[in-house]
Write a protein that binds this DNA or RNA. Structure first.
Length: 200
DNA sequence: ATTCGTTTATAAGTTCACCC
DNA sequence: GGGTGAACTTATAAACGAAT
């Protein structure tokens, strides 16, 4: 299913709080923007400033405190599962960078968050952006997937992770899935994993 | 044979312009 | 000034092809 402006607001949990008006006023890609709002709202108490959020943009920046990256640049996409999906129980997001961009924008040393959100399950998935933005970067679009099992586990336990090997390389990435209410933990974990990758 | 990645197509939403 | 219509932009969906 798809979240379009005007219909699926009820799919989003109470957590939007005061962000709701802002989110509802947002424009293109309602589904994504709603997710943006939820994402931000989930981190509200961890952010240095819950205001000045530009949810109308993709990606959008988020400033956080303490255990989280100071500046996060969030690329959030709607995570879907296709009827014709080859792999049963697989969810995926399609990365399409704005304006012919070939790489994630890391200006200002922002930590890039590559995330997906599924409104039906109400779970986020966090990929390792660095692991995907390598070499020539992203062509036109790039799809990454998660197993449904991981998502379900995240739903019940709050946070879950899944490692999968990227073909073409011997590198493996870790996908972190999480419920909105445990997003801070998931992000922290994701960040730690990225750091570990850098020093290896 | 199966899984992942890339590309193309279709749909919806939003914005801009013109006409009443 | 308001309303209606058209065009454009961006997102979502699906299929195809390559690699393991």
């Amino acid at each position: 299913m798809t979240a379009h402006a005007g219909d699926d607001f009820t799919l989003f949990p109470e957590s939007l709080g005061t962000l709701a008006p802002m989110v509802m006023r947002s424009r293109a890609g309602a589904g994504t923007r709603l997710a943006n709002g939820l994402f931000a709202a989930s981190l509200a108490d961890r952010c240095s400033s819950g205001d000045t959020l530009e949810l109308d943009k993709r990606p959008f920046d988020l400033r956080a405190a303490a255990p989280l990256p100071p500046l996060m640049r969030v690329y959030l996409y709607t995570m879907t599962t296709h009827p014709s999906e080859r792999q049963q129980g697989a969810y995926r997001i399609q990365i399409i960078l704005p304006n012919k961009g070939r790489h994630f924008d890391t200006t200002d040393d922002a930590y890039v968050i590559l995330a997906g959100y599924n409104p039906s399950l109400e779970v986020f998935a966090l990929w390792d952006a660095d692991a995907h933005d390598i070499g020539k970067g992203i062509p036109h679009s790039k799809g990454v997937q998660v197993l449904e099992d991981t998502l379900l586990e995240a739903m019940s336990r709050g946070v879950a992770r899944q490692t999968r090997r990227l073909r073409g390389t011997d590198e493996s990435e870790t996908v972190v899935a999480s419920r909105p209410d445990t997003l801070p933990e998931a992000l922290e974990l994701r960040w730690q994993l990225s750091i570990e990758r850098l020093i290896s």
